[in-house]
Simulated scan of single mutants.
Amino acid sequence: MSKKPVILITNDDGISAPGIKALIEVMQEIGTVVVVAPDSPQSAMGHAITINNTLYVNQISKENDKVLQYSCSGTPVDCVKMAVNEILHKKPDLCVSGINHGSNSSINVIYSGTMSAAVEAGIEGIPAIGFSLLDYSWNANFESCKKFVKTIAQQVLQNGLPSGTVLNVNIPNVDEKEIKGIKICRQAKAFWQEKFDKRTSPFGKDYYWLTGAFVNLDKGEDTDEWALAHNYVSVVPVQFDLTAYHAIQELNNWEF
C-alpha cells in the first residue's frame, strides 16, 4: 500500500476564507493535509516576508481533527517558510495555495500573495500550484472548480514539474458544465491603469484609495485571458528565474 503524499495548504485570503476550506476538502481526497495560513487577509502582499516583527504561529485544530491547521501572523510566504522549517521539519510532497477569491491571471501574478506562496515553495524545491477562482465575493461558490483542482493536483503529483517552475491556475466563474476544459497558456500582456481616489478625512487630512482598470493588450488565443474569457481553466507555468535572457546580448554591446 503506497503512502499518502503530504500536502501543504496555504493562501492569502486568511485561514477562515471559504476558498481554503474548499481546497482542504479536495486535498483530503488525495493525501495527508497540513494547513499553515495567515491569521488575517494578506491579499496583494506579493513575495513579502517578515523581518522587522516577530512571527506567531498558533495551532487551531483540535486533537482529534483529521487536518492539522495552524494560523500564522505573517505573510503567505512566511507561512510556507514556517511550515517547512518549524512545523513539518521537512519538505511536503506538494504545496497548494488558494483557492483565491478572485483572478490571478496575467500581470496579477506579480502582486499575488497566493502565487507568491506557491513560488516560495517552488524555490524550496517543492512542486507547487496556485489556484484562483474568478469570483471576488467572500461567498463565492467553489463547487464548480473542485474537479479541476483535484485533476491538476493529481497530475503534478504523478508527473512532477520542470525545475524552477510552478503552476498558476485560474478557473472561470461559471457552472462546471460550462467549463470547456483545461488549457495550457502563456501569461497575457496586460497591465493595471491605476488611479488614486483622493479624499479628505473629517480631520482635514488627505488620504487615497487605489483604484484602476485592467487593460489587456494581448489579442493572442494562447493566453490565460483568452482561455478564461472562453470558459477554459487556464494553466500558466511560471518560472521564478526573472533573468531577461533575450536582453543579455544587447546589453553586452553597450560600452560600459
Score class of each variant (00 low, 15 high):
residue 103 S to C: 02
residue 82 M to L: 15
residue 101 H to Q: 15
residue 113 G to I: 08
residue 130 G to E: 10
residue 102 G to M: 13
residue 198 K to S: 08
residue 194 E to A: 06
residue 16 S to G: 13
residue 162 P to W: 00
residue 226 W to F: 15
residue 189 K to P: 02
residue 109 V to M: 12
residue 3 K to Y: 01
residue 31 G to P: 00
residue 123 I to K: 12
residue 25 E to D: 13
residue 73 S to T: 10
residue 9 I to A: 11
residue 135 D to K: 00
residue 113 G to S: 02
residue 64 N to A: 15
residue 97 S to N: 09
residue 200 T to K: 12
residue 203 F to Q: 14
residue 40 S to P: 01
residue 73 S to I: 06
residue 170 N to Q: 04
residue 156 V to N: 02
residue 147 K to A: 14
residue 21 K to N: 08
residue 193 Q to K: 11
residue 191 F to G: 00
residue 252 N to T: 04
residue 191 F to K: 09
residue 108 N to K: 14
residue 185 C to Y: 07
residue 145 C to V: 14
residue 236 V to Y: 00
residue 171 I to Q: 03
residue 48 A to I: 08
residue 79 C to I: 12
residue 167 L to V: 02
residue 147 K to Q: 03
residue 173 N to A: 12
residue 182 I to Y: 12
residue 158 Q to Y: 06
residue 236 V to E: 00
residue 25 E to P: 00
residue 150 K to Y: 14
residue 183 K to E: 06
residue 68 L to H: 06
residue 85 N to R: 12
residue 223 T to C: 07
residue 7 I to D: 07
residue 43 S to I: 14
residue 227 A to G: 01
residue 17 A to M: 12
residue 238 V to R: 02
residue 117 A to Y: 11
residue 65 D to L: 13
residue 22 A to K: 12
residue 238 V to L: 08
residue 161 L to G: 03
residue 156 V to D: 00
residue 74 G to D: 09
residue 145 C to N: 04
residue 213 A to H: 03
residue 93 D to K: 05
residue 251 L to N: 12
residue 5 P to F: 08
residue 2 S to D: 13
residue 42 Q to W: 07
residue 17 A to C: 09
residue 105 S to R: 13
residue 221 E to R: 04
residue 185 C to I: 01
residue 90 K to F: 01
residue 19 G to E: 07
residue 197 D to W: 07
residue 44 A to S: 13
residue 98 G to Q: 09
residue 61 S to Y: 04
residue 172 P to E: 05
residue 246 H to N: 13
residue 219 K to M: 03
residue 173 N to P: 08
residue 211 T to S: 04
residue 22 A to E: 03
residue 171 I to D: 03
residue 1 M to K: 04
residue 136 Y to F: 12
residue 167 L to D: 00
residue 190 A to Y: 05
residue 165 T to I: 13
residue 149 V to W: 11
residue 23 L to Q: 14
residue 243 T to S: 10
residue 113 G to V: 06
residue 121 A to C: 06
residue 91 K to Y: 02
residue 171 I to E: 14
residue 221 E to T: 04
residue 87 I to F: 11
residue 141 N to K: 12
residue 202 P to I: 07
residue 205 K to A: 14
residue 114 T to F: 10
residue 73 S to N: 10
residue 98 G to S: 11
residue 117 A to I: 10
residue 168 N to V: 12
residue 250 E to M: 11
residue 62 K to M: 14
residue 128 A to N: 04
residue 43 S to H: 06
residue 86 E to T: 01
residue 36 V to G: 05
residue 202 P to A: 08
residue 235 V to F: 07
residue 143 E to F: 03
residue 62 K to V: 13
residue 153 A to M: 09
residue 100 N to S: 15
residue 163 S to Y: 10
residue 65 D to Y: 05
residue 123 I to P: 01
residue 121 A to W: 03
residue 220 G to K: 14
residue 232 Y to M: 04
residue 8 L to V: 05
residue 175 D to W: 06
residue 147 K to P: 01
residue 132 S to M: 09
residue 41 P to H: 10
residue 241 D to N: 14
residue 164 G to T: 02
residue 8 L to W: 07
residue 71 S to H: 11
residue 83 A to I: 08
residue 85 N to V: 05
